[in-house]
């Protein structure tokens, strides 16, 4: 068996102190900075006006009635059903009753929606700006350095990941370039930030990317661009077709069977 000769590259030990450690430290500090910048820039959740609260909760009341209708007597259910269906059809709970028939406003012109988008912009900015700056800084000063040798063997596929910026074909993939170290830091520092800042920190961009993929499900229901009157009419239909069962029907017999003294 032919033993593959171990590549040895004589590196200046100063590389370790002046590249590896600075990159790591800078990455950690940027993460902390980003966390505090996000905390500072985070707008207080916007206060909702009373009509908006009323609109949402009235819709929820209909949902509750539909889900839990078995708890009330048929007469009580009928009374609530008549009232709610009628009020929903007429738009009695709408935030802006005069806008009942109109189409949903364009989300771009709605100031409330704009605010949400501004928030997202800010979040992205705190991520993009430091990233660009640090990437530029590393490119300008440290590109082309091979800084460490990983203590375990790797296959050739890892070359493109670990040796970005070093165009040497025959070098063992165990060697790692400075830019690759930077990329590794971006993805690998999550646990360090968790330790320093607590688990719900805003330092890591991973979470922000997750957040963009699945924006809050709660916002969907009353989000911009949804016509509340249409929702109300849909809910009115749902309530109108509910088949009502009454739990108290025969409860005394059920209880007699189940209870043991």
């Amino acid at each position: 068996m032919a033993q593959i000769p171990i590549q040895t590259i004589h590196r200046d030990p100063q590389l370790f102190y002046w590249i590896l450690i600075p990159i790591t430290v800078v990455m950690i500090l940027t993460g902390i900075l980003r966390h505090y910048a996000t905390v500072l820039m985070a707008a207080m959740p916007k206060k909702q006006e009373l009509p908006a609260i009323r609109e949402q909760r009235s819709l929820l009341r209909g949902v509750n009635l539909r889900m839990n209708s078995h708890n009330i007597s048929p007469a009580a259910f009928q009374a609530r059903k008549d009232y709610l269906v009628n009020a929903y059809e007429n738009g009695a709970f709408l935030k802006e009753p005069e806008k009942k028939g109109q189409a949903a406003p364009n989300p771009m012109t709605d100031p409330a929606a704009m605010e949400g988008m501004m928030g997202m912009m800010k979040g992205n900015m705190t991520m993009i700006i430091p990233q660009t700056l640090i990437m530029g800084w590393i490119n300008a000063f440290f590109s082309g350095f091979v800084i460490i040798r990983l203590p375990f063997p790797l296959t050739i596929k890892f070359k493109s990941m670990l040796q970005a910026g070093v165009a040497t074909r025959d070098m063992d993939p165990q060697w790692m370039s400075s830019i690759s170290w930077y990329v590794l830091c971006i993805f690998g520092l999550q646990s360090v930030f968790n330790y320093l800042l607590g688990s719900d920190n805003a330092a890591s961009q991973m979470q922000q990317q997750m957040g963009q993929m699945a924006p809050g499900a709660g916002a969907q229901m009353f989000g911009p661009g949804v016509d509340p009157h249409k929702q109300f009419r849909g809910e009115a239909e749902n309530i109108a077709v509910v088949a009502h069962h009454y739990t108290l029907d025969g409860v005394e017999k059920r209880l007699l069977q189940s209870v043991k003294v």
Partner: peptide, 22 residues
């Protein structure tokens, strides 16, 4: 009326005993 029929007196008596015992 649309409500439930009044409970049977037998059931009521037995439940009364159950409640007292419990």
């Amino acid at each position: 009326d649309t409500g439930l029929p009044p409970p049977e007196i037998e059931t009521v008596k037995r439940l009364n005993e159950v409640a007292t015992a419990k």
